[in-house]
């Protein structure tokens, strides 16, 4: 697969609280190239910089140095809301990705207009509603019959599924998943992850998924990267990745001086 480059990170550095006792180097000259159609799983210990990487791509904060090329455009200096047109995002916290006081269909309509100038046209049209109903029914949660219910009434799993649908409703250049199943119970997590894979495969979405679950990291996607102290220490794809075992990853992890915690092994 030597096709279009979707995301190109060049020498990204980010240090939090520079010059204070809490100084924390989160990203250290990190470079990463993501090709079209890649489904990358990202693993690493606490504080390895996984979420910082995600937020740097999204533009939650400016990076100290380096370049971020997204969909062929240099977005390094673009604010978060302008980068949104390239990105679909699902957060770890199920409460973060949806608007609780707005209806299910209104949330979808907001997402459907990502990257578009928000005009004085109606916020949702009848035609869209049919489309949303169709999309919601695929989740198999019965939400298609509750389209005017406030999202705040849904459970965490339902909200996370909805967020995933919202992130992909308008096909993003890059789908970013930040431990999006971590706050869910195992059964729900499996279901949401299954839907993630389904939707990514169907739309050939380029995806970067952070996970703390090594089994998931090995099973999902075509490429795996391991992070440690703000850089990529292991990058594997294709057959080699498929052949990986959890023990191999733990071994790598130990060699690089990482701490292994229960969460990584058990879950």
């Amino acid at each position: 697969m030597s096709e279009k480059v979707i995301l190109d990170l060049k020498d990204i550095c980010k240090t939090f609280n520079r010059g204070s006792v809490n100084e924390k180097v989160a990203l250290k000259n990190l470079s990463l190239t993501v090709n079209e159609g890649d489904f990358i799983t990202v693993i690493g210990g606490n504080g390895a910089g996984k979420s910082t990487l995600m937020n740097a791509i999204c533009g939650t904060f400016p990076v100290d140095s380096g370049r971020i090329i997204l969909g062929g455009a240099d977005v390094t200096r673009l604010p978060e809301y302008k980068r949104a047109k390239y990105l679909g995002r699902v957060f770890q916290d199920p409460m973060m990705g949806t608007s609780p006081n707005m209806e299910i269909e209104e949330n979808l309509a907001l997402a459907y207009r990502r990257g578009k100038v928000r005009s004085l046209m109606p916020g949702i049209t009848r035609k869209e509603r049919e489309f949303y109903r169709e999309q919601l029914s695929r989740l198999g949660l019965g939400l298609e019959n509750r389209m005017t219910a406030k999202v705040g009434l849904l459970s965490g799993g339902q909200r996370q599924s909805l967020t995933l649908l919202m992130a992909t409703l308008k096909k993003p250049e890059l789908l970013l998943l930040d431990e999006h199943t971590a706050a869910l119970d195992p059964k729900t997590a499996a279901k949401v992850l299954g839907f993630t894979e389904e939707i990514a495969a169907e739309n050939n979405l380029t995806t970067v998924m952070i996970t703390h679950n090594m089994m998931d990291a090995i099973r999902c996607g075509n490429r795996l990267i391991m992070m440690q102290e703000g850089r990529v220490i292991y990058d594997v794809c294709g057959e080699e990745k498929k052949a990986l075992k959890v023990e191999d990853l733990l071994q790598r992890f130990r060699e690089s001086g990482g701490e292994i915690n229960d969460r990584m092994v058990l879950s």
Binding site: Y81, A84, S99, L110, R118, L120
Partner: peptide
Amino acid sequence: WFFGTEAGCGIRATGNNPDMSRAQGINV
């Protein structure tokens, strides 16, 4: 009328969940 338009929905989303709004490309 206004709060039912695209722009108005954006304002409601901004007040309701700024994180989500930014992720959906809304200028909070």
